[in-house]
């Protein structure tokens, strides 16, 4: 696996050579690429070797010589439950979904319940736009096989891997769940918004609680899935309507606690990631970029797009997802 920032011409040449690729970049650049074995998603934020940056003149390209075959599918929200039907034996799949689309919300809530969903590594991200363009420009994903852009469907690339190649997917969460005596939040409905929560078992208006208790909503709510810490980030708190919106769904019946505060975001990433990252695929969250003020700050060797949500099987927030392909 090779990660590079390439010009449109260089990326086009790579595609034309028959390479299997995932590509992130500005919509106007992705739209210029030729048809081939690639999928793409819009993003202008990246983590590079020298730190976070807004890049509009090059494309972040991951070339996958480990892939023997690529099968690209466009899946609208109603097609997503059949995602596992495209899994190749011993392979893995990349998925890109446009932010704010029905496919985004449906995948986030229902994905982990799809038949056969966990039977193969599934990695990807939610495409976005420059923050100044939210509401004016829709995030897109690209099906390289046709060259078509979509703002209402996921694009999935199912890979058959060369013999012996084994994918390893992991999430890097720089946050720790608060201690067991910290308030526990449980929700009675799954969704991207909530008016109330059971806080330590007592139904409580959520927006008022967060405000009255001075909760730092830059910190995510964290749930423990069998030892995997899964974040849900707060998008907004509306004291008038009482509505609290999230960047990923809170799930019914799950115990969440807010994260412990961090002293230094960039340092926390660098310490958790350590050395390495070369030849691995990774994506990081726009909220880490913003709250951690990562622009110009290096977080170690893991480079890639900064996204509106990360996918390692399920939708994640404020997390780095990494994928390594190695001989077994």
């Amino acid at each position: 696996m090779k990660n590079e920032l390439l010009s449109v011409d260089a990326a086009a040449a790579r595609i034309t050579s028959g390479a299997v690729m995932t590509i992130a970049g500005d919509e106007s650049l992705l739209a210029q690429l030729p048809k081939g074995n690639w999928i793409g998603g819009t993003s202008v934020y990246f983590v590079t070797d020298t730190g976070g940056a807004v890049i509009r003149d090059r494309l972040y390209c991951t070339t996958l010589p480990e892939a023997a075959k690529a099968d690209i599918k466009v899946l609208a929200a109603g097609d997503l439950p059949r995602i596992a039907e495209g899994y190749a034996t011993g392979g893995m799949s990349f998925i890109l979904i446009p932010a704010f689309s029905e496919a985004h919300s449906v995948f986030a809530v229902d994905g982990p319940s799809y038949t056969g969903f966990f039977n193969q590594p599934l990695v990807g991200w939610i495409s976005g736009v420059h923050l100044d363009d939210i509401g004016r420009v829709s995030p897109k994903v690209f099906d390289g096989a046709t060259g078509e852009a979509h703002d209402d469907a996921a694009v999935v690339m199912h890979l058959t891997l060369e013999d012996g190649m084994t994918p390893q997917v992991e999430i890097v969460n720089i946050f720790d769940q608060n201690d067991a005596d910290a308030p526990c939040f449980r929700f009675t409905q799954s969704g991207f918004a909530a008016q109330s929560a059971l806080i330590d078992g007592v139904e409580t208006p959520l927006a008022a609680y967060l405000q009255d208790n001075g909760i730092d909503t830059r910190l995510p709510l964290i749930a423990n899935y069998g030892g995997a810490l899964i974040n849900v980030s707060v998008q907004s708190v509306d004291p008038d309507s009482g509505k609290v919106a999230f960047y990923a769904p809170v799930m019914e019946g799950v115990d969440y606690r807010f994260a412990k505060p961090l002293k230094d975001y960039a340092d926390a990433f660098a310490r958790q990631l350590g050395a390495g990252g070369d030849g691995q695929y990774s994506c990081n969250c726009i909220l880490n970029y913003l709250y951690g003020e990562l622009e110009g700050k290096s977080t170690g060797g893991f480079t890639g797009p900064v996204t509106f949500g990360e996918i390692a099987y399920m939708l994640l927030n404020q997390t780095l997802v990494r994928l390594d392909l190695q001989p077994a």
Partner: peptide
Amino acid sequence: DRNLDGAKLATRILLGRLRIEARN
């Protein structure tokens, strides 16, 4: 509530989901 710290990510997440559904 046991964590499977050494297990693959898919195993941990699936176990977490099954626990939630069984508890609900």
